[in-house]
Design a protein around this nucleic acid. Structure first.
Lengths: 209, 209
DNA sequence: ATAAAAATCAGCCTTAGGTCTGATGTGAGC
DNA sequence: GCTCACATCAGACCTAAGGCTGATTTTTAT
């Protein structure tokens, strides 16, 4: 028999993490070697344990899942990433694929299903849960041409998502009101949205910080 | 030794549910007698099994946690409810307390902590997780005087949360633009917010439909 | 070194959003 | 019958928001 598949789990919900660990360790061909509730530590653990598969939650306080994936890509980590999420926003899902996630699934899947996916991904396969993939189909063509937001623009978008007015944002970032308006205008056209209300909704659903 | 504490679990995430069941069933003084992934079935299970404690998730597709609690209150159920949530909106949390939840905790607690809380609540105690209770302290005094939204106002708020303009809302509800503005104005003053962007954020965080 | 992208700001203009005051019809409750 | 909350609408008003054009400076990549 082969060595068991080494797995690292990164999720900020203790209960979810404990649940996953318990379930996975019931199997004898898969083993959880480490786990963490935040992105920073999680990244260190991956470097250290070099797991075959990493189960990664997207929404976390310190260092989001996206950040973790970016960093890992820089370091050319070979761990295969299965993204676990309840997020509905579509752009963030697309980002994970662009960053090379092998699996993509929502938190309401069966536990058995997760095990199957881990094995499949470890064997070199890919898997995207149907409830998520249908969100992506339309989007492939549309968003492909979409320019990414600059750092400043993301920052502004994040403040809009907190309900700040342009004036408040200008104070907050100590730049002129004009500049804020320019940024907002750019963000709107890049995301193909119509007003700041839709931006706020977008920001929340895609967890822009 | 006493009979084990009977628990019903209602949460739409399979993994969370399986995790909870596995963890709880490791204890010999607590027993999960039933579980469900939606509010409707969950309510039936509670009627049928009459559990001592119910662990209830707030955000679910069919019949939210709030609905379940309302129905149970009508039927004068004696099950003690522990609300499990990752929602940050404060009004919805306050609602759960008003509806008599005995426990209130976020999903990032320790598993052991949950067990302790179930025992405490069963014994007649109450528990609110610190990460949540601080959201409530300010609010007790402020929101007490807060008028509830009317049916129409909630409806309008819901559409704002979907990113509609006043004109679009007016078309959608087939009422005049003036009327929409009136409603929006009332909602703003009732919720003590400043503009529609903040309303949209509020609507999402409090899951206004 | 040079080109390209990002960040900054200004003026001008239009409109959606929001406030205030006030008015009318309707239904529930006392 | 009377009252009160609710939903509807109107006019007048003010401001934040966003579009468009154009410009300067800083950063970044090649």
């Amino acid at each position: 028999m082969n060595a068991p598949i080494k797995v690292v789990i990164i999720d900020d919900h203790n209960i979810v993490r404990r649940g996953l660990i318990t379930l996975i360790n019931l199997e004898d061909d898969i083993e959880v070697v480490a786990d963490s509730d935040n992105g920073e530590e999680g990244r260190r653990l991956i470097m250290e344990y070099k797991p075959d598969v990493t189960v990664l939650d997207l929404s976390m306080p310190k260092g989001s899942g996206i950040d973790v994936m970016k960093k890992l890509k820089q370091h050319q980590s070979t761990t295969k990433i299965v993204v676990l999420t309840s997020i509905s926003g579509s752009d963030i899902l697309y980002s994970t694929l662009a960053l090379g996630a092998k699996g993509l699934l929502s938190k309401d899947i069966d536990a058995d299903e997760l095990l199957t996916i881990i094995r499949k991904v470890q064997a070199g396969g890919e898997y995207i849960h149907p409830s998520i993939s249908h969100q992506l189909t339309n989007l492939q063509s549309e968003r492909f041409t979409q320019q990414a937001l600059t750092r400043r623009e993301s920052q502004v978008l994040g403040l809009i998502g907190k309900g700040l007015t342009n004036q408040a944002i200008s104070d907050n970032l100590t730049i002129s009101l004009k500049t804020v308006k320019t940024h907002v205008s750019h963000i709107l056209s890049k995301l193909e949205l119509n007003d700041r209300t839709q931006l706020a909704i977008y920001a929340i659903k895609n967890e822009v910080v």
